[in-house]
Amino acid sequence: MDMNTVGEITKWIKETDLAEVVYRKNGQGFEIRTEDAPLKAALPSCSYSPVASPAVGIYRSADAGKTRKFGEGTLVHPGDELGYVEVLSEKKPVAASSKGYIRIIAVEDGKPVQYGQPLFFLELA
Protein backbone atom coordinates (compact mmCIF):
# COMPACT_ATOMS: atom_id res chain seq x y z
CA MET A 1 0.00 0.00 0.00
CA ASP A 2 1.50 3.36 -0.98
CA MET A 3 1.69 6.37 1.32
CA ASN A 4 -0.85 8.35 -0.69
CA THR A 5 -3.50 5.74 0.04
CA VAL A 6 -2.58 5.79 3.72
CA GLY A 7 -2.94 9.58 3.66
CA GLU A 8 -6.36 9.34 2.00
CA ILE A 9 -7.54 6.84 4.58
CA THR A 10 -6.25 8.92 7.47
CA LYS A 11 -8.04 11.96 6.09
CA TRP A 12 -11.24 10.02 5.68
CA ILE A 13 -11.12 8.55 9.19
CA LYS A 14 -10.91 12.04 10.63
CA GLU A 15 -14.27 12.85 9.06
CA THR A 16 -15.94 9.87 10.68
CA ASP A 17 -16.43 8.87 14.28
CA LEU A 18 -14.65 5.58 13.74
CA ALA A 19 -12.00 4.63 16.26
CA GLU A 20 -10.34 1.84 14.35
CA VAL A 21 -10.45 0.34 10.89
CA VAL A 22 -8.75 -2.98 10.17
CA TYR A 23 -8.52 -4.23 6.60
CA ARG A 24 -7.12 -7.57 5.48
CA LYS A 25 -6.56 -8.52 1.91
CA ASN A 26 -6.40 -12.14 0.92
CA GLY A 27 -7.82 -13.68 4.03
CA GLN A 28 -10.69 -11.23 3.28
CA GLY A 29 -12.66 -9.45 5.90
CA PHE A 30 -12.99 -6.06 7.46
CA GLU A 31 -13.12 -4.88 11.01
CA ILE A 32 -14.50 -1.54 12.08
CA ARG A 33 -14.60 -0.41 15.65
CA THR A 34 -16.47 2.60 16.92
CA GLU A 35 -15.52 4.01 20.26
CA ASP A 36 -18.30 3.78 22.82
CA ALA A 37 -18.56 7.47 23.58
CA PRO A 38 -16.90 8.09 26.94
CA LEU A 39 -18.86 9.67 29.73
CA LYS A 40 -17.97 13.30 29.30
CA ALA A 41 -19.78 16.43 30.26
CA ALA A 42 -21.42 18.72 27.72
CA LEU A 43 -19.29 21.77 28.46
CA PRO A 44 -16.41 23.65 26.89
CA SER A 45 -13.05 23.16 28.56
CA CYS A 46 -12.62 24.41 32.10
CA SER A 47 -9.84 24.19 34.65
CA TYR A 48 -12.16 22.24 36.94
CA SER A 49 -12.92 18.65 36.13
CA PRO A 50 -16.63 17.82 35.81
CA VAL A 51 -18.44 14.83 37.25
CA ALA A 52 -21.19 13.89 34.80
CA SER A 53 -24.57 12.33 35.39
CA PRO A 54 -24.51 8.64 34.41
CA ALA A 55 -28.17 8.62 33.35
CA VAL A 56 -31.37 10.55 32.77
CA GLY A 57 -33.47 10.65 35.93
CA ILE A 58 -33.82 12.38 39.29
CA TYR A 59 -30.69 13.31 41.24
CA ARG A 60 -30.56 12.30 44.94
CA SER A 61 -27.61 13.27 47.13
CA ALA A 62 -28.47 10.53 49.63
CA ASP A 63 -31.18 7.98 50.42
CA ALA A 64 -34.28 9.39 52.11
CA GLY A 65 -33.67 9.88 55.85
CA LYS A 66 -29.89 9.77 55.46
CA THR A 67 -27.51 12.72 55.47
CA ARG A 68 -25.24 13.34 52.55
CA LYS A 69 -21.57 12.66 53.12
CA PHE A 70 -20.00 15.41 51.04
CA GLY A 71 -20.18 19.14 50.42
CA GLU A 72 -18.24 22.02 48.95
CA GLY A 73 -14.55 21.50 49.70
CA THR A 74 -14.74 17.73 50.33
CA LEU A 75 -11.75 15.80 49.00
CA VAL A 76 -12.98 12.90 46.89
CA HIS A 77 -11.21 9.96 45.26
CA PRO A 78 -12.00 8.22 41.99
CA GLY A 79 -15.04 6.02 42.47
CA ASP A 80 -16.33 7.85 45.55
CA GLU A 81 -20.12 8.10 45.38
CA LEU A 82 -21.61 11.57 45.16
CA GLY A 83 -25.24 10.55 45.48
CA TYR A 84 -27.13 8.75 42.71
CA VAL A 85 -29.52 9.24 39.81
CA GLU A 86 -32.87 7.55 40.18
CA VAL A 87 -34.03 6.04 36.89
CA LEU A 88 -37.55 4.76 37.56
CA SER A 89 -36.83 2.28 40.38
CA GLU A 90 -33.14 1.88 39.60
CA LYS A 91 -30.34 3.77 41.37
CA LYS A 92 -27.30 4.71 39.30
CA PRO A 93 -24.44 5.99 41.47
CA VAL A 94 -22.69 9.22 40.56
CA ALA A 95 -19.00 8.39 40.89
CA ALA A 96 -16.14 10.88 41.18
CA SER A 97 -13.96 10.61 38.10
CA SER A 98 -10.73 11.89 39.62
CA LYS A 99 -9.13 12.83 42.91
CA GLY A 100 -9.97 16.40 43.85
CA TYR A 101 -11.83 18.90 45.97
CA ILE A 102 -15.49 19.59 45.25
CA ARG A 103 -15.56 23.26 44.24
CA ILE A 104 -18.91 23.65 42.51
CA ILE A 105 -22.13 21.75 43.12
CA ALA A 106 -24.19 22.28 39.97
CA VAL A 107 -27.23 20.20 40.84
CA GLU A 108 -30.09 20.40 43.29
CA ASP A 109 -31.40 17.47 45.25
CA GLY A 110 -34.52 15.90 43.73
CA LYS A 111 -34.18 17.69 40.38
CA PRO A 112 -34.29 16.04 36.94
CA VAL A 113 -30.91 15.53 35.25
CA GLN A 114 -29.85 14.35 31.79
CA TYR A 115 -27.24 11.86 30.73
CA GLY A 116 -23.83 13.56 30.65
CA GLN A 117 -24.98 16.65 32.53
CA PRO A 118 -22.17 18.01 34.76
CA LEU A 119 -23.27 17.73 38.40
CA PHE A 120 -20.05 18.64 40.23
CA PHE A 121 -16.78 20.33 39.42
CA LEU A 122 -13.59 19.17 41.07
CA GLU A 123 -10.36 21.02 41.55
CA LEU A 124 -7.88 18.25 40.81
CA ALA A 125 -5.60 17.31 43.66
Binding site: A42, A55, V56
Partner: peptide, 20 residues
Protein backbone atom coordinates in the same frame (compact mmCIF):
# COMPACT_ATOMS: atom_id res chain seq x y z
CA UNK B 1 -32.99 15.44 26.65
CA UNK B 2 -29.73 13.54 26.34
CA UNK B 3 -30.52 9.96 27.32
CA UNK B 4 -27.28 8.06 26.84
CA UNK B 5 -24.15 7.19 24.91
CA UNK B 6 -23.91 6.73 21.14
CA UNK B 7 -24.62 2.97 20.88
CA UNK B 8 -28.39 2.55 20.62
CA UNK B 9 -28.60 -0.09 23.35
CA UNK B 10 -27.63 2.57 25.91
CA UNK B 11 -29.85 5.29 24.47
CA UNK B 12 -32.58 4.78 21.84
CA UNK B 13 -33.11 1.18 22.99
CA UNK B 14 -32.95 1.94 26.71
CA UNK B 15 -36.59 1.74 27.83
CA UNK B 16 -36.00 3.14 31.31
CA UNK B 17 -33.95 6.09 30.09
CA UNK B 18 -36.70 7.08 27.64
CA UNK B 19 -39.53 6.70 30.15
CA UNK B 20 -37.46 8.58 32.73
Amino acid sequence: VCIGPAPARGSYLDRNAIIS
